[in-house]
């Protein structure tokens, strides 16, 4: 799948997520923020995980890896750093999680290339 196809897929997913969350929450602001969160969990990892994995594998593995990093970071933030889990901290953790997933993808791609 090339970059153009990925853009189309993620845009379609974003629209579906917005529609779904509007139907459930009946609030546009909440729907947009929720769609971003759902994209971060379900779709962004597709762009970030190693190229050698198939799209189905990225879709299947991405959310589990993202949720694991996010919650473990939150655990560390609350129990080790003793920082409050405010909406701001939570948003920072989501951003850090996306960066971490991206880092994992780059690292695995590099390992793959070195093997070749």
């Amino acid at each position: 799948m090339n970059a153009k196809q990925m853009m189309i897929t993620s845009s379609a997913a974003a629209i579906l997520f917005v529609l779904l969350t509007i139907v459930i929450s009946k609030d546009m602001g909440i729907a947009l923020r929720t769609s971003f969160m759902l994209l971060a969990i379900f779709i962004f990892p597709v762009f970030l995980l190693p190229k050698s994995w198939t799209l189905t594998e990225k879709l299947a593995l991405g959310p589990g890896i993202t949720i694991a990093i996010l919650v473990l970071l939150a655990y560390g933030t609350s129990t080790i750093l003793h920082l409050p889990l405010t909406p701001g901290t939570s948003m920072t953790l989501v951003t850090l999680t996306i960066a971490a997933v991206s880092g994992i993808g780059i690292m695995l791609n590099t390992i793959q290339q070195n093997k070749k």
Partner: peptide, 29 residues
């Protein structure tokens, strides 16, 4: 619980509606 709390912290999504949103998505996953 931390995952659900983070989700609602970031999005403002009501916690009691999370089941309706996330359970079908997690089943697809």
């Amino acid at each position: 619980h931390v995952f659900a709390a983070l989700f609602t912290n970031v999005t403002g999504f009501p916690l009691h509606l999370l089941e309706l949103l996330l359970v079908p998505l997690l089943f697809v996953l």
